[in-house]
Nucleic acid binder design. Structure first.
Length: 443
RNA sequence: GUGGAUGUAGCUCAGCUGGUAGAGCGCGGGUUUGUGGUACCCGAUGUCGCGGGUUCAAAACCCGCCAUCCACCCCA
């Protein structure tokens, strides 16, 4: 006999066994439901796109991480890297059929050829909600509120959304005399690491990467340093006055968005954080990331982020269409929750087990199981046969909560013995009473 | 892409300075009659990641490869 094939998954790709898939699916449903309740409609797009659709949208690094290849018709194609660029393509391509503002949600896997790490995979599920067609604080706030409500509906505690604005970054730098784009980007990259390598480390990196002198670098860091909250920004604006119009406008935008989120009762989940940089590729307005505060999983990075991208759709169309969105990385969130022991385990178990005394009653067992299933209860029928003790053993090993025993006596009286495996108590119940009785045991 | 750590039964791991492998959990069977989980008894586990080398002898030492994890980079 030939040796069996190697059973293996690709690096960075994973199987989701029921133990993780069951809670994962419950989360997906909750997210979808929350998106829908916030007025977003479902959209789906192909996993594969033309290479040129995706190339150059994510920056140098991003291009390297695209899965690219040639299809059987010699077309250059790539697996989607996110859900935002496909959305931009859709809005441009179906512009005539869509009514603006267009609100869509999209839950689907994306692929990035990165080096896998804890909480970082090559295939992972993104859950996005975006609004195309409106550039306003209200649209920004609507998207943020939706995202925060999603986290709430998932029961995620200890998450914090760090909000910033792209023009705050550039405005602060220009105020310090850093006006060259490459220098600005180098500075922003460095500042992004403030909480990781400290102020001195950031100064060093700016001197090295942006070729500023130490004094200038220190000034830059000072502009971002002291926690970098909204108050610091407002103070900076007050001092700078009209000499920093871009900065002023960005800060006003942040104020407006924050006020709206506060009115929705979610202010305590958001803080302004000028050190948030994010990909500078297509973002043009607010940017943000959401991190879990528990130190055990803080290093896994952001679980939900996004921002405003008013120029992206225009790349695919003559018309400029502003847009803003949020993106939740479900598999990273799931990995974090799993590590924190916050995933429910009961979902991967079937609560009702129907024992079958002998083959004579098999048909009746199916009938009884059917009564429960019709009532919305999850039930499985024993398939292994054998002694009743064996069947009970299987039931409890599988995590069932209730076992129904069905023998010829029970069939004769149109009843079943219902045993609660938790308490050990058992009761004979007629078939008509069965669904209600079992349901009462499961609550 | 750069640097570091790890790789022994399904899982978590032990195996001291080289003498061809162990534990716990899990798994299978049993403790007779239509009752599981707890207890007791018995049992099977394995190219010691892969390929070379050193040696009388390698799971252990050396080299290469692969995989996983961690940090950097970047990100969800």
């Amino acid at each position: 006999m030939a040796a069996p094939l190697q059973a293996q998954t690709l690096k960075g790709f994973r199987d989701y066994l029921p133990e993780t898939m069951a809670p994962r699916q419950a989360m997906i449903r909750a997210i979808e439901d929350t998106f829908a309740r916030h007025g977003f409609l479902p959209l789906q797009t192909p996993a594969l796109e033309y290479e040129e659709t995706l190339m150059g949208k994510y920056g140098e690094e991003g291009d390297k991480l695209l899965y690219r290849f040639e299809d059987n018709g010699q077309r250059r194609v790539a697996l989607r890297y996110d859900l935002t660029v496909p959305l931009a393509r859709v809005v441009a391509q179906h512009r005539a059929e869509l009514q603006l503002p267009f609100r869509r949600y999209h839950i689907a896997p994306v692929w990035r050829a990165e080096k896998p790490q804890r909480g970082r995979f090559r295939e992972f599920l993104q859950c996005d909600a975006d609004i195309a067609g409106v550039n306003s604080p209200l649209a920004d706030a609507e998207v943020l509120v939706t995202g925060l409500q999603v986290l709430r509906s998932l029961g995620v505690e200890g998450a914090r959304l760090h909000l910033n604005h792209r023009d705050v970054l550039f405005g602060l730098l220009e105020l310090r005399g850093v006006t060259e784009k490459p220098q600005q980007i180098a500075c922003i990259r460095a500042v992004d690491k403030l909480d990781k390598i400290g102020a001195a480390g950031v100064v060093a990196e700016i001197v090295r990467e942006a070729q500023l002198d130490t004094q200038a670098a220190e000034q830059v860091v000072a502009a971002f340093a002291p926690g970098g909250g909204l108050k610091d920004l407002q103070q900076t604006v007050a001092v700078a006055g009209d000499s920093a119009p871009v900065l002023k406008q960005a800060v006003e935008r942040l104020e407006a968005v924050l006020a709206l989120v506060a009115a929705a009762g979610l202010a305590d989940l958001i803080t302004v954080d000028v050190s948030i940089a994010r990909g500078l590729d297509y973002y043009t307005g607010i940017i943000y990331e959401t991190r879990l505060t528990d130190p055990k999983v803080a290093s896994m990075g952001a679980v939900m982020s996004g921002g405003r991208y008013d120029g992206l759709i225009g790349l695919f169309s003559k018309e400029q269409v502003p847009a803003v969105g949020i993106s939740l990385g479900l598999d990273r969130l799931l990995a974090a929750l799993q590590e924190l022991g916050l995933l429910p385990t009961h979902l991967a178990r079937v609560p009702v087990y129907v024992a079958v005394m002998d083959s004579q009653v098999a048909g009746h067992a199916l009938h009884v199981a059917g009564l429960l299933r019709a009532a919305g209860l999850r039930a499985e029928v024993d398939l292994g046969g054998g002694k009743l003790g064996k069947q009970f053993e299987r039931a409890s090993k599988r995590g069932a909560q209730v076992v129904l025993v069905l023998g010829s006596d029970e069939v004769a009286s149109q009843s079943a013995v219902v045993k609660d495996l938790g308490s050990g108590q058992q009761t004979p119940v007629s078939w008509t009473e069965l669904p209600a009785f079992v349901a009462s045991l499961l609550t």
